[in-house]
Simulated scan of single mutants.
Amino acid sequence: MSDDTESARKDTSKSPEEPIEFLPIARSSPRRTISTGYIHLGASREIVPVLRELGLDPDALIRASGLEPCQFEDSTNVVTFASLARLYTLSVASTRCPHLGLLVGRRATILSMDLVGRLMQHSETVGAALDGLVSNLDVQDRAVVASLTNTDGVALLTFAVYSPSTESAEQITDASLAIAVNALRALCGSEWNPIEVLVPRTTPSNPEPYRQHFRAPVRFNQESATLVFPAEDLMRKVAGADPLLRTVLEDRMRQLRADAGAGFSDDIRRLLRTRLLGARCTAEDMAGLLAVHRRTMSRRLRGSGQGYRLMTNQIRFEIARQLLGDTEVPLVEIAAALGYSEASAFTRAFRRWSGQTPTAWRAGWGHDARLPPSAG
């Protein structure tokens, strides 16, 4: 085990509100590059002590999900996201704790995010730290995507699961929000709180654990998993940041990204997952974000066997399924969020994708619905 991995393990055991020591990172520390659908355990390693606290044997559940208990000894171990999501599903069912993901995220610290967390620690400002999180999360996590927007003096940090047919997406996003709050408190001070927190799941019977952790109003049945906070917080200086270490970490991130060889289509999917809700996402818009000509983008997508329209509809279907299954957001609001001028147009599209109306899918949870490969 490398020295910095051992240091991160020690720091991860701290309370989220304790001061976190800024530690150097060894240039030779081994890190595995990952492909789409894989993830470093990171903060999810905390599911082991959470299950023990709730009176269960974590090893049995870990094996039932297709993983091995020894994998949870190191947060940098790489696992399939499908297996990890399955573990959350089994754990929620066994504990009957609907906010298990929140408990997992609540135990994590900024160092639970390994290299990304260290990059955040050594950024000049909070805004630069969050930009580093958004830009580099895919180095360690190829199933969750983050975005940061700043509008009218309000900053929005949003997380979304973008892998198709993912189990327990609400648990994963709960954990992501909880970790993000801990990271921001590490950067801004333990008294930092968001203005409000948006959660894309039905209102739980006991919302108090959410209020206690976030120390802010929590709004359920929302379209996205978002922390809302003053944009002026982005300008805060990060105490103890080391510009030299920041440069070393950025170089390491670039190397890992190059080694991973992320596909062009995967980059677009990640951008679409957070931008389809309430934003323009034409082919021209996406090409501009990727700094390529639209014809170049279309040619590269054809090379991967997909077109932009098909990919956009696949992401719309994924978002629609998540909102229909995990929330009580009305159909008219889901339609508007996905860019449809009328609910009837959304209903026609959803029926074409799944063979069911959105109402029928929601009533039956639509577990067997799949997007036909040729849907447009």
Rank of each mutant, 00 (worst) to 15 (best):
L184P: 05
L184Q: 01
R185K: 10
A186G: 08
L187K: 01
L187A: 07
C188M: 14
G189K: 06
G189T: 13
S190A: 15
E191Q: 12
E191A: 11
W192L: 07
N193S: 15
N193R: 15
N193D: 06
N193E: 13
P194Y: 07
I195C: 03
I195S: 07
E196H: 01
V197N: 07
L198F: 08
L198K: 14
V199R: 04
V199I: 15
V199G: 08
P204Y: 01
P204I: 07
N206F: 03
N206K: 02
N206L: 08
P207G: 01
P209I: 06
P209A: 08
R211C: 01
R211M: 08
H213N: 02
F214K: 06
F214H: 03
F214Y: 01
F214D: 06
R215N: 04
A216E: 02
V218L: 09
V218N: 06
R219F: 06
R219S: 01
R219V: 10
N221A: 01
Q222D: 01
E223K: 13
S224G: 00
S224D: 00
A225Q: 02
T226N: 02
L227S: 05
V228N: 01
V228W: 00
F229S: 03
F229Y: 05
A231K: 03
E232I: 08
D233H: 07
D233E: 13
M235D: 14
M235E: 13
K237D: 12
V238R: 11
V238F: 10
A241C: 14
A241E: 00
D242E: 12
P243H: 06
L244P: 09
L245N: 06
R246C: 13
T247H: 11
V248F: 04
V248R: 08
L249P: 10
L249A: 09
E250L: 15
D251F: 10
D251T: 10
R252D: 01
R252Y: 05
R252N: 00
M253G: 09
M253R: 02
R254M: 11
Q255W: 11
Q255A: 12
L256G: 13
R257G: 12
R257H: 10
A258I: 06
A258S: 11
A260G: 09
G261C: 06
G261E: 02
G261H: 03
A262V: 14
G263Q: 10
G263S: 13
G263R: 15
F264R: 07
S265C: 02
S265K: 11
D266W: 12
D267L: 13
I268W: 00
R269I: 13
L271W: 14
L271R: 14
R273I: 01
T274W: 08
T274C: 00
T274G: 03
R275C: 06
L277K: 10
L277E: 04
A279G: 02
A279Q: 15
R280M: 13
R280L: 11
R280Y: 02
C281I: 12
C281V: 15
T282L: 01
A283P: 04
E284C: 03
E284Y: 04
E284L: 13
D285G: 05
M286E: 06
M286H: 03
A287W: 03
G288R: 10
L289M: 13
L290P: 04
L290G: 05
V292A: 00
V292N: 05
H293W: 04
M297C: 03
M297V: 09
M297L: 15
S298I: 14
S298F: 12
R299C: 07
R300V: 07
G303K: 08
G303W: 00
G305M: 05
G307D: 11
G307R: 14
